[in-house]
């Protein structure tokens, strides 16, 4: 892994995007890595666009400001593609992971992704509906991000999801989220 990996999440309030960034940070702690997870705090409203960030590094993380040049861009809500330039500042070799059921070619065109940039899609909302019965795409997105970045193994991530969700939710919800995470990991596809 490179010294530093910077991730930017684009979601809407209420989709669990901030939780996903937090779980990812926790999962990446292993192996002595340094981690950060932080959202952009605005007026907190369900449905409002929000950003969250991760930094994962083998070295101490001293930078305390938003991620401006992300290597990974996670788009939890594809309707944001119409209103926000999610590719802003992304590196030339950036990886985009988009939650969508739409035609992958259409997404790639919409992002105006460069030739060095990779675009992955996963139908995280459908997976969430199947597994949890609610449109909470964060767990499958988390699985997809782990697959495309190789940050942690699927087993390790599932352990962490269990730990994070176990504090608040019933066994049924935990099991649903574990299954959703696993399916996100397995179903993410490159265009």
């Amino acid at each position: 892994m490179a010294d530093l990996l910077e991730i930017r999440w684009h979601g809407r309030g209420g989709q669990g995007t901030v939780t996903a960034a937090k779980v990812l940070a926790d999962a990446c702690l292993s192996g002595g890595r340094h981690v950060q997870a932080f959202p952009e705090y605005g007026p907190e409203r369900a449905g409002a666009p929000l950003r969250a960030y991760n930094r994962i590094s083998s070295k101490e993380l001293r930078m305390h400001c938003p991620v401006l040049r992300p290597k990974v861009v996670s788009v939890v809500d594809a309707t944001l593609l119409d209103s926000i330039n999610v590719g802003d500042g992304a590196t030339g070799d950036a990886i985009f992971v988009v939650n969508t059921s739409r035609d992958p070619k259409e997404i790639r065109a919409k992002l105006s992704a460069g030739s060095g940039q990779k675009v992955y899609t996963v139908d995280a909302t459908k997976i969430a509906m199947d597994c949890i019965g609610r449109a909470l795409p964060n767990a499958p997105m988390l699985g997809a991000i782990c697959k495309v970045t190789g940050l942690v193994s699927l087993d390790h991530l599932l352990d962490d999801v269990k730990k994070s969700f176990g504090k608040k939710f019933s066994q049924k919800i935990i099991d649903g989220n574990l299954e959703a995470t696993r399916r996100g990991y397995e179903e993410v596809r490159e265009i």
């Binding site: 937090k22 940070a25 926790d26 702690l29 890595r33 340094h34 981690v35 950060q36 997870a37 932080f38 959202p39 705090y41 993380l61 305390h64």
Partner: peptide
């Protein structure tokens, strides 16, 4: 300590 930047950010 800095509000939000530190108080609400997760770090190792």
């Amino acid at each position: 300590l800095d509000g939000f930047i530190i108080s609400h950010s997760i770090e190792r």
